[in-house]
Design a protein around this nucleic acid. Sequence first.
DNA 1: GCCGGTATCTAGGCATTGACAAGTTCACGA
DNA 2: TCGTGAACTTGTCAATGCCTAGATACCGGC
Lengths: 192, 192
Amino acid sequence: MTSRKTYHHGDLRQSVLAAALDVITAEGPGALSLRDLARRAGVSHAAPAHHFKDRAGLLTAIAAEGYDLLAAALAGTPELRERGVRYVRFAADHPAHFQVMFQPELLRTDDPDLVAAKERASAELRAGVADLPDVPDARAAGIAAWSLAHGFATLLLTRNITAALGDQGPEEYFRSLTGLLFTGQLTTESRD
Amino acid sequence: MTSRKTYHHGDLRQSVLAAALDVITAEGPGALSLRDLARRAGVSHAAPAHHFKDRAGLLTAIAAEGYDLLAAALAGTPELRERGVRYVRFAADHPAHFQVMFQPELLRTDDPDLVAAKERASAELRAGVADLPDVPDARAAGIAAWSLAHGFATLLLTRNITAALGDQGPEEYFRSLTGLLFTGQLTTESRD
DNA sequence: GCCGGTATCTAGGCATTGACAAGTTCACGA
DNA sequence: TCGTGAACTTGTCAATGCCTAGATACCGGC
């Protein structure tokens, strides 16, 4: 509702993006309305379209930004476990990005910017397992680690493990979870 | 478009549910339109509302059905690993249910039927770790296992691991993944 | 300093949708 | 037979996405 003296908003793209993240965080991507975002920014209802083309364009831009944020969050972390912790932290800190990134139906998955950003994040994920010693199938190991972190993050954001967390932060809880796995406490059953 | 001779459809609820699952599977929950579902069933545009109240009601019914299907899929499986495999299989077999179940913004989370069905599924999940020997924190172990299976399932449905699968089925791949973890092949790094 | 091109934003309109209200048809039991 | 309620229809309203045409302002070349 910020009144504006100039004809040009000046920073409409960022303004709309920020408002979109708020809405998605609070009510999910389904509640997104381009017209509502325009109202919040104090511009006419068709103004956002110039920056994002349409709804899918806006969400694609958010997803691309998310992949870049994820890549940055993972960069420079040597240990695999700590990468997992940072993955969880990213999801907790950027829930809107995270949600949109993993709902391909909402996106233009062939968008060049999105593809490039996703590849940068993907490279960081692969780097986490590349230097593991004595792992026969690095790709499978990577998917195992990714599944664990991604599942934890998803269950966290869908409020499926809030009770279990207690007063502990998600990151610490996840760190101790990996400890449980890596010290073999879950391996006591039959092996085939 | 099936022409109908009687005034009453006869099985509108099931008809709408089935059509909704098709749409969600193909294009996600966002593409759901009550009016479109009505057209497919050959009824007037407001007929579905009588059975599901509104959009959230329809999605809540789908989620509840999903939790019951999941509980049934897990029931009677003794081993934890096999429960994980069945969890993955459930997601692969019922992608629409799975998606909707884990998007709380779309649902009426306080709906009694939904809460009850979710509790039944939750009980089956807990049962998987209840009889594990020598696990100090069964709850944490359960969340670790759930995270792994849920993450794998989610990444599978979002087409993030299709390349890695090759011609292997998701279930077999997941089974071998758990093998990787449970035989300690990912535990070679530092332990603190 | 000004002038034209272009990015940015406005205004209007159309088809579609979700939700609501009121009326119609039908099944079923007293 | 009658009436009661469930199942479905019809009509309507506000809101949305998207398109098109037009208005405004910024910016580089001259």
